[in-house]
């Protein structure tokens, strides 16, 4: 197997020799549709392979023994991270609209939305 493009993954034997790397099927065309992305058949093929590889590596997490791992929020002394209901500084309308593709009457203008 080739040297990993994901150096943050552990260099275990299983990883190195690739004997238990699972495969994960992914319907790229469908997901691209949800994300409103237009992909060519070649791109679907390329991204499909790449994404499946990524997901296969992530799936390896299932092999980690998490029996003694405490869920976030379940650990002793856990404290909520909340904010009091008090106003903080805001952006000016002008600043907010600086990145807008188009603006008018203080609004972000976008291609017409269908209802």
């Amino acid at each position: 197997m080739e040297k990993s493009a994901f150096p943050f993954l552990p260099e275990t034997d299983a990883f190195r020799y690739g004997y238990s790397v699972p495969t994960v099927a992914i319907d790229v065309a469908y997901v691209a549709g949800l994300a409103r992305l237009r992909l060519s058949p070649e791109e679907i093929e390329t991204f499909g392979n790449q994404l499946e590889q990524v997901l296969a590596y992530v799936k390896k997490l299932e092999e980690v023994d998490v029996q003694d791992v405490v869920l976030v929020g379940e650990e002793k002394g856990f404290q909520n991270r909340l904010r009091p209901d008090r106003a903080l500084p805001e952006l000016s309308t002008n600043e907010a609209l600086e990145n807008a593709p188009q603006r008018g009457s203080g609004l972000f203008l976008v291609p017409r939305i269908l209802e």
Binding site: G104, F108, P111, I113
Partner: peptide
Amino acid sequence: HLENCSGIDF
């Protein structure tokens, strides 16, 4: 919903 585009207020 404007004539040729939509305007968004966040």
